[in-house]
Computed example of a mutant assay.
Amino acid sequence: MKLLRIGEPGEERPAVRTDGGVLLDLSSVTADIDGAFLGSGGLERARAAVDADLLPEFDAGGLRVGAPLARPGKVVCVGLNYRDHAAETKAAVPERPVIFMKDPGTVVGPYDEVLIPRGSVKTDWEVELAVVIGRRARYLDGPDAARDVIAGYAISHDVSEREFQLEYSPQWDLGKSCETFNPLGPWFVTADEVADPQNLGLRLSVNGVKRQDGNARDMIFPVAHIVSYLSQYMVLEPGDVINTGTPAGVALGLSGTPYLRPGDTVELEIDGLGGQRQTFAQA
């Protein structure tokens, strides 16, 4: 299934997108797509309603597409998780996953305007595969157990301000948690429909110029390893999101490539997960 949320901020309604592109109203099953829905068997209820043809069509009528999850409990990020990205930024290949947190309030819709922070001169792009957690996870016993707690996958845009991130603090949070810095969606695809999360192409262009063109098979630490690893140090809850890293092609690693400015347009896509498009504006 492809699950999404339609409507203005704070007024989104849950929906399912069929393989034929028809939107079905999920409001009779749940008030929202969130951690409570995922943690209480919501995906199974939604699938049963779809299979039984119980859901009316959703007349989106040009309405906004919101993030496919109501505000996540937490957004956990993995840095330097592609060898080519580590190389372009002149960073050593990490021996263990590089983990940082991102303010869940940064999560916005896939086509929403993204704000360049005041004083920013190095706002950068990063297309990433996002993992949506569907079951509570603590001290998982390896990758096989990790796969059982994954609800699905989505496109995540881990927008970053590099000066804030790398020059203002020894930790990365300042450059990662600016408002609107994590467009998510347009939907999340349930795990059963993603045959191999390590074989997905990721692409990003800026003003029509391709900047990133990678594949999840080049991750240093695969998805299941990341989920298992994180569960040794924190409890993952239904509705949490994990950003799994970005391939090469960010402005930080492309000498002479300009960072983002107001009016720039960024387009992202991941195989089987749809696409995003954002125009950047001044905060």
Rank of each mutant, 00 (worst) to 15 (best):
L3V: 07
E8I: 07
P9H: 13
P14F: 01
V16K: 01
G21E: 02
L23A: 05
L26Q: 03
S28Q: 09
A31V: 02
A31Y: 01
A36F: 04
A36N: 10
S40I: 00
R45C: 05
A46F: 09
L55T: 02
P56D: 05
D59V: 02
V65H: 04
A70G: 03
R71K: 14
P72Q: 07
R83L: 11
T89V: 14
A92V: 07
V108G: 00
P110T: 10
L115W: 07
V121H: 14
T123C: 14
D124L: 10
V127I: 15
E128R: 10
A137I: 06
A137V: 06
D141L: 14
V149E: 01
V159E: 10
E161Y: 09
E161D: 15
R162I: 06
E163Q: 01
E167A: 12
Y168G: 00
D173K: 01
D173G: 08
G175M: 01
K176C: 15
S177N: 13
S177K: 11
E179P: 01
T180L: 14
P186F: 02
T190N: 08
T190V: 11
D192A: 06
V194Y: 07
G201V: 07
R203L: 05
S205K: 08
N207V: 10
G208K: 15
G208I: 15
I220V: 15
H225W: 09
S228Q: 05
L236Q: 00
D240C: 10
I242Q: 08
L252P: 00
G253N: 08
D264Q: 11
E267D: 15
L268W: 12
E269C: 09
G274Q: 12
G274A: 13
R277S: 15
T279G: 12
A283D: 15
A283M: 12
